[in-house]
Nucleic acid binder design. Sequence first.
DNA 1: CGCGTTTACGTCGTTCGTAACGATA
DNA 2: TATCGTTACGAACGACGTAAACGCG
Lengths: 330, 330
Amino acid sequence: MTLTQLRYLVAIADSGLNITLAAERVHATQPGLSKRLRQLEDELGFQLFARKGKSLDAVTHAGQHVLERARIILAEAANIRAIAANLRNETRGELRIATTHTQARFALPAAIGALNRRYPQVSVHLQPCRDGEVLAQLEAGHVDLAVISTAGAPPPAGIALPAYRWQRVIVAPQGHPLGEHGQPPTLAGLAALPLVSYDSSLKPDSSLRRAFEAAGLQPQIAMTAGDADLIKTYVRTGLGIGVLAEMAMLDSDTDLRTLPTGHLFPQCTTWIVLRRESVLREYVLEFIAQFAPQLDRRDVVRTLAGAAPGEWPAVPHWHDRLPAALPDAA
Amino acid sequence: MTLTQLRYLVAIADSGLNITLAAERVHATQPGLSKRLRQLEDELGFQLFARKGKSLDAVTHAGQHVLERARIILAEAANIRAIAANLRNETRGELRIATTHTQARFALPAAIGALNRRYPQVSVHLQPCRDGEVLAQLEAGHVDLAVISTAGAPPPAGIALPAYRWQRVIVAPQGHPLGEHGQPPTLAGLAALPLVSYDSSLKPDSSLRRAFEAAGLQPQIAMTAGDADLIKTYVRTGLGIGVLAEMAMLDSDTDLRTLPTGHLFPQCTTWIVLRRESVLREYVLEFIAQFAPQLDRRDVVRTLAGAAPGEWPAVPHWHDRLPAALPDAA
DNA sequence: CGCGTTTACGTCGTTCGTAACGATA
DNA sequence: TATCGTTACGAACGACGTAAACGCG
């Protein structure tokens, strides 16, 4: 068994059992991977993949278990390399982040910009995913960290650091009667209107949907999109009333009216999620410090090392956080 | 970075920084290890070991971290091999157990005997240690499982499975006046007599010592030994009254009188401790089934895989357990 | 016939052990 | 001077890439 064999094995699994594709990804030749895989299977004495003719058809039951272990091994090898890179003050590297579109478009740019000024040689890769896929990307080792929001408890996997809290806002075209006369909108009032919101609000466990259900109401979702910009666009065309994250509203959106929802929907928290036991490069810590300035660097490292989560400082609200996110501009 | 380099690295660390000794242990030559170590250090870009002249003097701070990761990697590689060996019904292998003398001498023989009848090709290695070292042996990966006793909570490391409960007994030579007239001995009565017990009873957190302290008494420890046979021997010579584990009393000890201590000292539990996330060979599960027959095999596997400990069945007392430990004799 | 895998083969790099050398106590 | 680590060297092995053959849709 060698690390190369395991790296190839995982690459093949991650390439949908296509050895040729996997070979490109690991910068090697296809026969090489093929041979190394067979070699590993011979040593272990069983098939890692079920074959259909010559091609790989599925991962064996035992192969699943081996894959899990192989991922851990590769992750720890990466950790060792990270320790080394940190120690020699290596400023090059890459930062892979899995997150949703709203975070990538509205919340992350400030922190990534600051990171890029401090570490210009770090290349950032944003991996946009749907809500449900973000944690899977993290667990599979495809990204270094995930940024994701929940309405209540922290996400179930990895180490979650609270970054900031936010609320949904209601967005209407200028001139729309909703809430014109200083009347805050009600859930019942909203349920009577066609809504435009995120794709995730269709899921039965969405906190938006549950807020309506708790009031015995059924919202009319006129349209959903994965993308806050799309939602705003369709609100502008008059398709309906938008319900989206407050971060998505820009100063330039003067043709839209924004109403707070503090009384209608639960508050959300955005988390930075890290793999348990992973070693972070210096610049990843820097990114975390930029994105969640209230967190103490040492607490982050301690928590990753397996220490009890401890008490985090109060989590700031999105709009209270903005100035702190750019400390180097002060 | 290769698995070989990491294996050599760990071997060197485990051999007290003696490369020559490490080379023997991994069945390779000394120059080979030397070169591989330097190679790894070159790749990582820093020293894993501090040198004094040519010899290795200490593990670097960063080296500590790398060693931790390397141990995890090697453990997971061993797990993969264990999966493979289980799958092809390999009946050969070895079972390394770290434990105290009392367990090895009195509690384990039945289970190991049964294991040996079922898996004659498995060679068992008992690693006798002092109490405090047992868990370190396990964590360092030198043994497959540990068997250790505590007076209350499970041991702090790894996954602990309760095997059986036991009490200390008081042992006196036949003819000694203690408790002759049906009077159960008291703590105060014992404190007035010279005692012979385990080395570990000298430690300030020993449950024996604490039982006396809770009663405001100071026992006279006339002698300690790591070994119940020695304790019995010196009790026979009249050096003092023995306080030892009930398992250590054999039917053949007719020249000693045994008094129970249920009212004096807290009950102890003997645990099987496993490394978290480790994959067990079939014969290890068989050993566990022999030694702690009340445990369900599937629960053991589930717990190892990281499931919540759940509720274990009632833990039998040592003397209630004996017949069940030899089910194949029935 | 294109796609993907395996087989065959030559080259290159790496590892390993032996032997000699060097430093340290 | 005995012990332990490093350097030097040659042999053997293993990994890799190229090229060709094979199977399947």
